[in-house]
Design a protein around this nucleic acid. Structure first.
Length: 909
RNA sequence: GGGCGACUAGCUCAGCUGGUCAGAGCGCACGGUUCACAUCCGUGAGGUCGUUGGUUCGAAUCCAUCGUCGCCCACCA
């Protein structure tokens, strides 16, 4: 039964991957029910935006999650990866609005209900896209439990949480200064504002002082003398906001201005009277030490105003244009207003200087528009009471962040948390469940739409026009997806979840809030471990952005290289929590690795022979194991443990490196090459082996590969399934590699074999090096002499003579206790032996001498280091015995090598 | 203004809790029609592990300082 027929030389993921995905789905292997009796294991996907297309960041997260879910499934656990999407309030509304604009429509033309319907239609047509793309990547989400943050079930959860928080006094409504996006025309939370240092200006403006009316009787103008102060100079970065000034503040300890406290200044241009107040907030060192106070448009000024009872004059409308309160400046864009105000001040001689000044500017995280702080009536969540338990959850280890340096960031944010503005002036989202009674003004807060006012019974109720911040519903995700607030089977089984994988960019938006709200409502942390991935950057390490045009589309990469290649590459170049630089060409590593394995499989399958008998690593004939066999089995066992440890310790990226090393460097580069001589059969190279050994070698080739594929499956699911299905294995009723048993059979391990093998490897490499350094044509098979004083060393080489001859492409190999009479040899000095390659003719020895001299210098340095250390009394006393012993070994080894090298050099001279 | 992270071979980076690594991938150089693979094979080139101090018998690995870069947070107008 030959299985290699029609196997192409190059692996073609494009044709293979979709086929396997469909095959898995047909068998329903993504559902936790494939292991009905296993311990539950669950992950909820960070829900992508409904408008979103799979980007490289999603891909990275998905690969990590898939690795964990797939391993859990192979471990026999009831593994569930919940998939779903987020309604993404502002983002989605913006997208649909843009769509409408293309048809010449505004959302107001449709009206609220029709617009919301329009968005739902968008969701129906586009919302499934990302699921398909995740499928293409190989994600093993359970597609039978899709959730959407606006599902009826999730909506119920949202309302319940809102009502409960309100009842507990943790949700309140009030007029405060908030962040306003004039383009999206909605309030934003602090987290939704991105601060950016920007070049600006600092203007100095003269505000005239009113005559001192308070004690005007005692001192008239004349008495005050010519030096009487008649104006105050304020400094500001936003001159246009002076139209909303209602006071001026100075620091009470500032000698220069103390005497002015309690007096009145006159607002230029508008003429409003401004009380001069004392406030510690004012920094005497900054600007002129005098601050104009605009309570309605600056957070600092707002609090100053509150402390001193200043009026609040809001001069901007919802689009940040000046309103009628701006007097003659009404109806202007805020920047036009600035230009006009500055021009007029200058004309009146009140402008007393302009200087460059850097200042942080807040921008809307959705559209980039400069945010306008303004006074507005909004809903808020009181965060302090919720933050404490979330802090505790991390401190006591209920939630563990990986890497743990995020703990500090977490603590800093939660310790300094501000109340959360949750109302948005949008149409798309969860409408706030508050109904105001037209008759009595009572606010009915209810989980269900009320028919009548709960206090006066009137039926004239109007629901709040606003919707909730998207993140208000997202924060419920880890339990709402399981049916909460109902006590469902899924909730009991899969909550709390095991793992959350996310980018650190939404640590505050989402992760912290999930923990806070979950503890509050379920009494438990929503997940045990959190892996914070890095951000994927371009090959030069720059942030990817559409405007910069340096994005890489995972879909393109999958098409060009295959999903497995992309998955492998992402993990291969990722470090935990560190940004990774990805250019398309880097994915070649993954593709090449996949192709390598494919070809290794072709080789193994092509050499099975008709007499191959399926077996397992559990019934090996130990007497027939040779050095390489013992070595590769030891490496397999070690790699298996290391892979498990990497995942258990939340270093998923290490898996890629471990398996690359094992499968490529160990298995393909050495073990397969080595085995070629031991396959037996007609025309086989190297020594003839008996039938039993031949069979066992083939079995090892098959089984070690199969075990490696198993370990690799969570990372490269398609290729591993493809090959695994073709290999002749004892399947024991297992249909797919997806549900194969994780972990390898017990195999013999030997430290000794690993050490010996390394020596043989060294010998082969040394000979190859010699061949290269004397430019020996590859076809030529030279005579090589290995001289080893120690019988054991000689014996080891002797035992593997044939394989060494083959791998190093030698003609003859002589093994002796003493070096030959040196003439016409290229020489290398190894631990325990010297290698002499007969170069045929005594050609130029210059290169070789230089090489050996350099080697001598190196050895000399190492020997001196070792000696110095050993001669140090304290080292001998304080270093562990193990370390001292090793040092002694090294010393004598270096010494021997040096002696040999000297001898060799003598002969060349 | 605070906090965090980075600075290791030409490039992108690994190196966890100090004494087996000074490493990987790519690139480069040289050589290859070795019958699994040119999406390949072999070999190699040597980087004072950013600066300056310190702790230690011993530091790329700990501490401090300085420098450069990046990120996050931030109510000095």
């Amino acid at each position: 039964m030959r299985r290699d027929e029609a196997l192409p030389k190059t692996y073609d993921p494009a044709s293979r991957e979709p086929r396997w995905y469909a095959w898995w789905r047909e068998r329903d292997l993504f559902r936790p029910e494939v292991n009905p009796d296993g311990a539950p294991y669950s992950i909820v996907i960070p829900p992508p935006n409904v408008t979103g297309s799979l980007h490289i960041g999603h891909a990275l997260n998905a690969v990590v999650q898939d690795q964990y879910v797939r391993r859990a499934r192979m471990q026999g656990r009831r593994a569930l990866w919940v998939y779903g999407i987020d309604h993404a309030g502002i983002a989605t509304q913006n997208v649909v609005e843009r769509e409408l604009a293309r048809r010449g429509l505004r959302k107001e033309d449709l009206g609220r209900d029709a617009f919301v319907e329009e968005v739902w239609r968008w969701k129906e047509t586009h919302g499934g896209r990302i699921a398909e793309q995740l499928g293409g990547l190989g994600a093993s989400c359970d597609w039978s439990r899709p959730r959407f943050t606006m599902d009826p079930g999730l909506s119920r959860a949202v309302r319940k949480v809102f009502v409960e928080l309100h009842r507990k006094g943790l949700i309140y409504r009030g007029t405060y200064i908030i962040n306003w996006c004039p383009r999206c025309r909605t309030a934003l939370s602090d987290e939704e504002v991105e601060h950016e240092e920007t070049e600006g200006k600092l203007w100095r403006i003269a505000y005239p002082l009113e005559p001192d009316a308070a004690d005007g009787t005692g001192r008239d103008e004349g008495a005050a003398g010519a030096g009487a102060q008649t104006e105050l100079i304020v400094a500001t970065t936003r001159p246009e906001t002076m139209l909303g000034d209602t006071g001026v503040a100075v620091n009470p300890s500032d000698e220069r201005h103390r005497h002015l406290i309690g007096r009145t200044a006159r607002l230029p241009l508008l003429g409003r009277a401004l009380p001069i107040v004392a406030d510690d907030f004012v920094d005497p060192e900054f600007g002129t030490g005098v601050v104009k106070v605009t309570p309605a448009h600056d957070p600092n000024d707002y609090w100053i105003g509150k402390r001193h009872g200043l009026a609040e004059v809001r001069i901007f409308d919802d689009e940040a244009r000046t309103n009628e309160l701006a007097g003659p400046y009404a109806g202007l864009d805020r920047y036009e207003a600035r230009t006009r105000v500055v021009a007029d001040l200058e004309a009146q001689g009140l402008l007393r200087g302009v200087e460059d000044h850097r200042l942080p500017l807040g921008r809307c995280y959705r559209c980039g528009t400069v945010v306008e702080p303004l006074l507005s009536k909004q809903w808020f969540v009181k965060m302090k009471p919720l933050a404490g338990p979330a802090l505790d959850a991390v401190r006591n280890g209920d939630v563990r962040l990986h890497p743990d340096r995020w703990v500090k960031v977490w603590e800093h944010w939660l310790e300094n948390i501000h109340d959360w503005c949750i109302s948005r002036q949008l149409w798309w989202g969860h409408r706030i469940p508050v109904w105001t009674c037209a008759a009595c003004g009572h606010e009915n807060v209810s989980e269900t739409d009320p028919a009548a006012c709960e206090t006066c019974g009137s039926t004239e109720l109007r629901q709040d026009e606003d919707v909730l911040d998207t993140w208000f519903s997202s924060q419920l995700w880890p339990f709402s997806v399981f049916g909460w607030p109902d006590d469902t089977e899924d909730l009991r089984t899969y909550y709390p979840t095991n793992l959350l994988v996310s980018g650190p960019d939404i640590l505050f938006f989402w992760i912290a809030r999930m923990v806070m709200i979950a503890v509050e409502f379920t009494g438990r942390a929503p997940f045990r471990d959190v892996i914070l991935t890095g951000i994927v950057r371009d090959a030069q390490g720059r942030k990817m952005s559409k405007s910069a045009g340096n994005t890489v589309d995972p879909l393109d990469l999958i098409e060009a290289y295959g999903a497995d290649a992309l998955r492998f590459t992402l993990m291969f170049i990722a470090a935990p929590g560190t940004d990774l630089a990805l250019g398309p060409e880097r994915v070649e590593v993954g593709r090449n690795f996949a192709n390598k394995l494919w070809n290794a499989a072709r080789f193994v399958l092509g050499n099975l022979g008709d007499d191959y008998v399926v077996g397992s690593l559990e019934d090996l004939d130990e007497d027939r194991l040779d050095l390489a066999d013992r070595w590769i089995l030891s490496r397999l066992a070690r790699t298996t443990r290391a892979v498990d440890a990497a995942l258990d310790e939340f270093r998923p990226n290490d898996v890629a490196n471990l398996l690359f090393d094992f499968l490529k460097h160990d298995y393909c580069d050495w073990y397969v090459e080595w085995s070629k001589a031991r396959l037996g059969g007609a025309g086989a190279p190297g020594a003839a082996v008996d039938a039993g050994t031949s069979l066992q070698v083939r079995r090892l080739l098959v089984e070690v590969l199969a075990e490696g594929l198993k370990l690799l499956h969570p990372l490269m699911p398609f290729l591993t399934e493809e090959i695994w299905q073709r290999l002749p294995l004892e399947r024991r009723g297992v249909d797919s590699l997806m549900t194969a048993v994780w972990g390898i059979p017990k195999v013999p391990e030997s430290e000794d074999a690993v050490a010996s093998w390394t020596a043989v490897q060294g010998l082969v490499t040394a000979v190859r090096d010699l061949r290269n350094s004397i430019r020996l044509p590859p076809a030529e098979k030279p005579r090589v002499i290995v001289a080893a004083a120690d019988g054991a060393d000689r014996e080891r080489v002797e035992r593997h003579r044939d394989e060494i001859v083959r791998l190093a492409r030698l003609g003859t190999l002589e093994i002796r206790p003493e070096p030959p009479a040196r003439d016409g040899f290229a020489t290398a000095v190894l631990t325990g032996m010297e290698v002499f390659l007969d170069r045929g003719s005594p050609a130029s020895r210059q290169d070789e001498r230089r090489k050996l001299e350099r080697e001598r210098e190196r050895l000399d340095r190492l020997l001196r280091d070792a000696t110095r250390r050993l001669e140090n009394e304290e080292f001998r006393e304080r270093a562990p015995a193990e370390v001292v012993r090793r040092e002694e070994e090294k010393q004598s080894e270096f010494r021997t090598l040096l002696e040999k090298l000297e001898r060799t050099l003598d002969t060349i001279r």
